[in-house]
């Protein structure tokens, strides 16, 4: 198996990670596509240096989140979501697009979208059931800090959801 084939197999097996990170960080389709492309580039650049002491998914999350946090595109560059030829790297089929309209999933992404870039990283890893230690290692902050952050995010989320329910 060539390096490129191994890489494609890895992407195929973990495409959900890239989708979730891109969706959590970008509201517009054009932005999401650009972010996915940038994540792929950096994953490819780092692929031959992959350190097996890390779990592959943890390594992918680290790179994807780092790219997503530093990803920046001027809003003037935004185009309408009307691309007729689907040439995205990750192509979402219609069934999934419908499933993603599920109220809770939609609200969750909406909530994540409102957080600051670092809190987005924390909550995505938390939702993926990463331990506090693993989140702290990925972010390079202390475990205590992670615990405090999660408690604050939980509080904020409960508040937002109860507001939605009362409307």
């Amino acid at each position: 198996m060539t390096l490129h084939q191994s890489f494609t197999a890895m992407i195929e097996h973990n495409k959900g990670i890239i989708y979730k990170v891109a969706n959590g960080y970008c509201q517009h389709k054009e932005d999401r596509n650009d972010l996915v492309q940038e994540i792929m580039v950096q994953l490819w650049r780092a692929f031959d240096k992959y350190d097996e002491q890390y779990q592959l998914s943890t390594w992918m999350y680290r790179i994807s989140l780092n790219v997503a946090i530093s990803f920046y595109r001027k809003s003037s560059k935004l185009k309408e979501d009307s691309t007729e030829i689907n040439d995205d790297i990750l192509q979402v089929n219609e069934d999934l697009a419908e499933q993603q309209q599920d109220e809770n999933i939609r609200l969750l992404y909406e909530f994540i979208g409102g957080l600051n870039p670092l809190d987005k990283a924390i909550i995505i890893l938390y939702l993926e059931s990463h331990t506090h230690q693993s989140i702290a290692d990925t972010l390079g902050i202390s475990q205590t800090n992670v615990a405090t952050k999660i408690a604050r995010i939980k509080h904020k989320l409960n508040h937002q959801f109860s507001n939605k329910e009362s409307k």
Partner: peptide, 26 residues
Amino acid sequence: MNLEQLKDTWQGQSEQLQNGINVNEQ
């Protein structure tokens, strides 16, 4: 709905995503 319940919803996406996304290899 709290964060713990949403965790299940979030993780429930994984299978959908695996089946619902195609990688454009070219």
